[in-house]
Amino acid sequence: MDGFLLVLWAVRLLFLGLIYLFLYRVVRALLRDLRAAAREPADRPGRLVILESPTGEPAAGLSYGLDVITSLGRDVNNAIVIDDPFASGDHAVLTYRGQSWYIEDLESTNGSYVNGRRVEGVAPLGFGDELQIGQVRMRLERGMR
């Protein structure tokens, strides 16, 4: 009977031990996942994804990692060149200040639109918001991925 009692305790402790082994393996996987996410280039505060671009420059589906100050326009000196007949040479600037993004329209001829609303001067831009310059539609997304 004593032998059986020993087996009983062994099985009991083994069950508890296995639950903890499971937890250990899961936590290790979680840590690996977090480390991988930390190692990835998270220095970009955001991305700009081109949704629609009739002229093909920039091409639809492209994704630009954004710097803290990113200029947009038809002029080749811009960080993101928008070769669209309705875009101005120096059309707009995207800036990341504090914890959020802002768009400043540089008095372009046809204006910049956030979610279909025309930007007057500087306007805040949230992740997931849609930006339109000329006929090019873009969406701001988080930089982490």
């Binding site: 087996v7 099985v11 069950f15 639950i19 393996r25």
Partner: peptide
């Protein structure tokens, strides 16, 4: 797959413990 395998082993052991008691 690996984690589910571990779950399966743990449950079998748990069931053994229950049966033994």
């Amino acid at each position: 797959f690996r984690l589910l395998g571990l779950v399966a082993i743990a449950l079998v052991v748990g069931s053994l413990s229950l049966g033994a008691t």
